[in-house]
């Protein structure tokens, strides 16, 4: 299978699924799921718990492979054997609980797994660069950190999500999957995150948002994919539907 390089990315990037099937034993988690997404917009996958959202995310992010169907990026068929491979291909996932490690400090979290090293024989961890970069990258997302040596657990919930998003973008994510980014947050924190998610559109990122908060999802997103019992039952552009319209379909 073709392994996608970041350099194959263009300014505009599409992620398409075509007739995806996935079963676990006798359980059919996904049946005939197709979707088309493009960059510069927020693509929202809506569905109840157990509808198959997680399975879909896991396929996109490289945790599992689909049993049948095609997974394409920029019209090229891809297949990933690990989340790392997907990440190297520019597809990053921010999970709601696993985004950061609370007892490690902020800059160690930011560079986790991809630590910058100094030149020289010992290749030591370049902490100055890490510290400085962390401050700069978070500033782009309106988070001012005076001391990146603080434990990441001392950040607010919203700041943690934004840290994970900033990290993904810094390491070259072009397609960003956000798994329930605000579900554990209060209103104020939630709004902070929402503002930053909207700003991703200006950077021409292809955002795939997983949510079950209909109001928020409607406000944020440009395109909606509704999944029920493993089936992609409806797709809408924003102008084709309304909050009530979405709710009716979901609660049917």
């Amino acid at each position: 299978m073709a392994v996608l390089k970041k350099s194959t990315y263009m300014n505009s990037n599409t992620l398409d699924l075509y007739k995806i099937y996935k079963s676990f034993g006798n359980v059919k988690a996904l049946k005939n799921v197709s979707m088309n997404t493009k960059s510069g917009q927020i693509n929202c996958i809506l569905g109840d718990n157990g509808a198959g959202k997680s399975t879909l995310v896991n396929i996109i992010s490289g945790v599992f492979r689909q049993d049948e169907g095609d997974y394409k990026i920029n019209d090229e068929i891809v297949s990933f054997s690990s989340p790392m491979e997907a990440m190297n291909a520019g597809i990053s996932t921010v999970y709601q609980n696993l985004a950061i490690i609370p007892i490690m400090n902020i800059y160690r979290n930011f560079f986790l797994g991809q630590e910058p090293t100094k030149k020289g024989f010992f290749k030591t961890f370049d902490k100055e660069f890490a510290t400085q970069t962390t401050i700069e990258e978070l500033e782009k997302f309106d988070i001012k950190i005076e001391n990146p040596k603080r434990a990441a657990g001392t950040l607010s919930g919203g700041e943690r999500q934004i840290l994970a998003i900033a990290r993904a973008l810094y390491f070259g994510a072009k397609i960003l999957i956000l798994d329930e980014p605000t579900s554990a947050l209060g209103v104020k924190e939630s709004n902070k995150v929402v503002d930053q998610i909207i700003s991703l559109k200006d950077q021409n990122i292809n955002v795939i948002l997983i949510s079950h908060n209909i109001e928020q999802a409607f406000m944020l997103s440009d395109k909606f994919f509704i999944i029920k019992n493993g089936d992609m039952i409806e797709q809408f552009e924003k102008n084709q539907t309304s909050v009530n319209g979405l709710r009716k379909i979901l609660e049917k």
């Binding site: 690990s82 989340p83 696993l98 490690i101 007892i103 797994g113 630590e115």
Partner: peptide
């Protein structure tokens, strides 16, 4: 850094490769 991360959260570390 990987030693710290491994002990702090197995799952997060795995996801970061």
């Amino acid at each position: 850094n990987w030693v710290f991360a491994t002990g702090a959260s197995k799952e997060s570390s795995k996801l970061m490769g």
